[in-house]
């Protein structure tokens, strides 16, 4: 991504859907490998978010070759901080840190903490992991970009169980009140949280109606369909005067049959047999 020949040029990604799909497959392989080596971590929610992150970082977000701190870059906040392995697998492909670091995930002295820590990991904007806080942070970034006259767009990835946190709805009001049309929330609607189905633990439906009622431009997409995700990001740019929420319908543990839709794998690493099967299914 940080191609020397493009130095000093703004990179505008030209999405190649096949390439993005292949990247998502490799990101999933990395997630499985990292968690297997770490013997811990959040598998299900990392796999459910893989296509969203790949579409966003490699198909949409504006970066600057040679300057990862470019002030006018598009920004991303991983509000569902437990999806860190997917985030790290994307950041490593953007050249933020060497690939061997991936295998140190969650280990003593690693730059890759169990949940994102901007103090340790190049490319991470802010610490997250305590749920419900990222949307407020994204609002602040969106307000700052507006004041600075920057064209940056701000993206925040939320978990579906996360919207049970009251602060999310405080932030939902603030974003609509200030008409933050440079803000896009993406909701990883994988329908599972630690204790079970969201419908059983604490109902969050009707989800789209809630965001609409809070004044947000709301879309629903298949969160594993990269062209649909890219089209949604593009559509959000046309919306003026209000923030956008993309509800991305996903499958927790997506990509590996034994993990899909199983609440057990929310925060569990694969054992050796599961690891072998996952690598096989992902074509590693």
């Amino acid at each position: 991504m940080l191609d020397d020949e493009k130095a000093d040029k703004e990179i505008t990604a030209i999405p190649d859907h096949r390439l993005l799909k292949e990247t998502a497959r490799q990101v999933r392989l990395d997630i499985v490998e990292m968690l297997f080596r770490a013997s811990s971590g959040h598998l299900g929610g990392s796999l459910s978010a893989a296509d969203i992150l790949v579409a966003l970082f490699f198909g949409e977000m504006r970066a600057h070759a040679g300057d990862p701190c470019w002030i006018d870059r598009d920004r991303f906040i991983l509000s569902k901080g437990h999806g860190a392995p997917a985030y790290y697998a994307v950041l490593v492909r953007l050249g933020y840190f060497p690939r061997e670091e991936l295998l140190t995930l969650r280990q003593f002295g690693s730059i890759l903490q169990g949940h994102p820590d901007s103090g340790c990991t190049p490319g991470v904007e802010i610490p997250t992991g305590s749920l419900g806080q990222g949307l407020s942070i994204a609002n602040g970034l969106a307000l700052a970009a507006r004041l600075n006259g920057h064209a940056s767009r701000i993206y925040a990835l939320l978990g579906d169980g996360e919207v049970q946190e009251g602060q999310i709805w405080e932030a939902a009001m603030t974003a609509a009140h200030y008409g933050l049309d440079n803000l896009v929330g993406i909701l990883d609607r994988n329908r599972l949280q630690i204790d079970g189905h969201t419908a059983e633990v604490m109902s969050i439906e009707p989800l789209a109606d809630k965001w609409k009622a809070f004044g947000w431009h709301t879309l629903e997409v298949d969160g594993h369909d990269i062209p649909q995700l890219l089209a949604a990001f593009t559509a959000c740019k046309e919306v003026k005067g209000r923030p956008s929420m993309i509800i991305a319908h996903t499958v927790k543990g997506k990509g590996v049959s034994i993990f899909e839709g199983q609440k057990k794998y929310h925060g569990t690493a694969p054992n050796p047999e599961e690891y072998q099967q996952a690598v096989k299914e992902l074509g590693g």
Partner: peptide
């Protein structure tokens, strides 16, 4: 909304304010 107050302030700081 004090929780949102702190988060929004954090985002503004991150954006250089």
């Amino acid at each position: 909304a004090e929780q949102d107050l702190m988060g929004t302030a954090a985002g503004l700081a991150l954006g250089g304010k």
